[in-house]
Every structure is written in C-alpha cells, then in structure tokens.
C-alpha cells in the first residue's frame, strides 16, 4: 500500500518540529541518517543530495564563520588573530545548530523529493485545502522548467539578433534587462490567457468539486497522521514548559 502524501508530509513536518524542540545532538544525527536512508531507499538520494548541499553547505560555513571566529560569550580560546577569537564554545554552538538545521532540512527534503505532486494536490483538494493554494504549488513546479526553457529560447533569439554578452557586471546587467523584458512580458501575457482559460473552466466556482485522480487512504494512515501531529504538539509544549521553568 502506497504512503498517502499527507502522511509523508505529517511525518516530515513533525520530525522537523520534534528535532528542533528537542535540540539534542544524538537525535539530530539520527534524523539526518534516517532521512538519508529513507531517501536512498526511495531512489531519490541522487537528486536530494545536490539540493541539500546547495542549501546546507553555505549555511554551515556561515555558522562556522559567525560563531567560530567570533563568540564573545566563549571562554575556552583555541586561537586568536586580531579581533577574531576561535573558542570551543563557539565551534560547539555552530556545529550543534548546523546539525539541528541539517536534520530538519533533510527530513523535509526527503519528503518533497519523494512525494508525487499531483497526488499531494489531489489529497489537499480532497481535505478541503483551498484549491488555489494547491494551484500555486503545482503550477510553480510545472512552470519552473517551462520558464527556464523560455528564458533559454529568448537568449538564443537575442543572440540571433547580434547580442554578444560580454564579461563584466555592467554588460551582464544590461543583458539581463534585454532578456528579462521579453520574458516578463510574455509571462504576463500568457498568464492573462491562462487566467481566462481557467475561469472558463470553473476555476473560481464556489460549488463543490470532485477529483478525477484518486489517492488511496486508510484508517491506519489517518490514525498515524493524528499521532504524528499530537507528538509534534506535545514536543513543542514540553519544550516551552521546561524553558519557562528553567529560564
């Protein structure tokens, strides 16, 4: 039986929340490992890893730079160059935050790279989530490659007009204008046509809707989703209570 997309979303979301609330090294590392394992088992690791790296590498470097080089609250100084002070506390804080963010990011990415977007959209519609939100999500994902291809076509068309993009910020900025203007104009025009087409097909109708695509669901999954959400809520409440008591 296939996993219902909302079950996946609930699992990823509550994992991210619980990891953030718990804020413990071992749990974060376990979640990182778990997310990678799930993604590898689902065959999405090849796409997930570059996307995760694009987000997490700069973030981790930034954290190391911020807290590794300057952590005024730190006491154990490991090295010092002028104003920069490398402290054990700073490095610890940076790594700890990095692992925690990594865990949340990987859990969510493991979901978004494995979910079938059409199923998710159908499931959201069935649960009464505004059809317009599902539309924005699905349409953005469809348009991303289409608009990239359109931008490429515009670049080609302008090369054929004799445009040679030279190096340097000014030239690139000028070239950006030349390519952005027809792109935005075409996108706004196409959106106008699409809006009319959607309206004619009942996009804004207020009555009840049906769904052509069926997404299998089960009582077990429904219970699981409820349990996951409860667990996330409990983790948040627990953390807030302990911090209120301790702080």
């Amino acid at each position: 039986m296939r996993l219902h997309p909302l079950t996946g979303l609930a699992a990823a979301g509550s994992t991210a929340v619980i990891t953030t609330a718990a804020g413990s090294w071992p749990l974060s590392l376990a979640v990182v490992a778990g997310a990678l394992a799930v993604s590898a088992a689902g065959g999405t690791a090849r796409r997930l890893l570059p996307a995760a790296a694009a987000v997490l590498v700069p973030l981790t470097l930034s954290l190391l730079m911020v807290h590794g080089l300057a952590y005024p609250e730190g006491r154990t100084v490991l090295a010092e160059w002028g104003p920069a002070r490398v402290t054990a506390e700073g490095l610890g804080f940076a790594l700890q935050r990095a692992v925690q963010v990594c865990a949340a990011v990987l859990a969510l990415l493991a979901f978004s790279f494995s979910v079938s977007v059409p199923d998710l959209v159908a499931a959201m519609n069935a649960k009464g989530v505004s059809g317009r939100f599902a539309f924005v999500l699905a349409s953005t994902l469809t348009l991303l490659p289409a608009i990239a291809a359109q931008a490429e076509r515009i670049r080609t068309a302008q090369e054929a007009r004799g445009l040679v993009i030279r190096r340097g910020l000014v030239h690139r900025a000028a070239a950006f204008r030349l390519q952005a203007v027809p792109l935005v104009l075409a996108l706004v025009d196409d959106a106008g046509t699409r809006a009319a087409a959607l309206e004619a097909r009942g996009f804004s109708s207020s009555g009840p809707r049906t769904s052509y695509r069926t997404v299998p669901d089960s009582t077990a999954q429904r219970l699981l989703r409820a349990a996951l959400l409860l667990a996330a809520a409990a983790a948040v409440v627990l953390r807030l209570l302990t911090s209120a008591a301790g702080g």
Binding site: P118, A197, L198, T210, R213
Partner: peptide, 26 residues
C-alpha cells in the same frame, strides 16, 4: 499551451479539470 491549467499531471486529468470544478461525479 497557454490554455492549459499547468496543474494537472496527465492529459486525462487536464481534460477533466473543468468537470472537477463543476462537481461532476467521477
């Protein structure tokens, strides 16, 4: 191409989009 909904994954679902919005039974 500009008339398509961009939110349906198959030709069949694209065809059905208008019927879905009208609440036609499956």
């Amino acid at each position: 191409a500009a008339a398509l909904s961009t939110v349906r994954a198959t030709v069949a679902e694209e065809l059905a989009f208008g019927l879905e919005n009208a609440g036609v039974p499956r």
